[in-house]
Simulated scan of single mutants.
Amino acid sequence: MELEGDLFSLTNLRNMEIIDINTGAKLGFIKDLKINCEEHKIISIILPSQTFKISLFGKNEDIEIPWDNVKKIGVDVILVDGKNLVEE
């Protein structure tokens, strides 16, 4: 993964739009992160679902993108390989 800067705050990451490099589609903004606290690594980013499908208990289905699929973090966007997006 390429970085255009050295460090990013969580607030900065959450304000960057996520773009799929395969289709150019705008996937939205980061809703949450999965972090491995023992290894101090981000495991995946969580995005709100693009569909308006609501489950039995009123919870929206979210999209999880593994951190390995993040290809580049730019100034105001994050480019990801969204081939195999997983809805939680």
Rank of each mutant, 00 (worst) to 15 (best):
E2I: 09
E4G: 09
G5C: 03
L7S: 04
L7V: 03
S9C: 08
L10A: 01
N12Y: 11
N12A: 15
L13A: 07
L13C: 09
R14V: 14
R14S: 14
R14P: 10
M16D: 01
E17H: 12
I18Q: 08
I18S: 11
I18R: 08
I18Y: 07
I19T: 05
I21K: 13
I21H: 04
N22S: 09
T23E: 06
T23G: 10
A25G: 10
A25K: 15
K26V: 14
G28H: 12
F29T: 09
F29V: 03
F29L: 12
F29N: 01
K31L: 14
D32M: 07
L33E: 02
L33W: 05
N36S: 06
N36A: 00
E38R: 15
E39W: 07
E39Q: 13
E39N: 06
H40G: 04
I43C: 12
I43T: 14
I45E: 02
I46Y: 01
L47H: 01
L47S: 00
L47G: 02
P48T: 06
P48H: 09
P48D: 11
S49A: 08
S49C: 10
Q50V: 08
Q50L: 06
T51P: 03
T51R: 13
I54Q: 02
S55C: 11
L56W: 03
L56Y: 04
G58Q: 10
K59I: 13
K59Y: 13
N60T: 11
N60A: 14
N60H: 14
E61Q: 14
D62H: 04
D62V: 08
D62Q: 03
D62R: 03
D62N: 12
I63N: 10
I63M: 14
E64I: 14
I65P: 07
I65K: 09
I65T: 10
P66T: 01
P66W: 01
W67G: 00
D68I: 14
D68P: 00
N69A: 14
V70F: 01
V70T: 09
K71R: 13
K72H: 11
K72Y: 06
I73K: 02
I73A: 00
G74P: 04
G74L: 12
D76T: 13
V77A: 06
V77D: 13
I78D: 07
L79R: 02
V80S: 04
D81R: 12
D81H: 12
D81Q: 10
D81T: 05
G82M: 05
K83F: 09
L85V: 10
E87I: 15
E88L: 05
E88V: 05
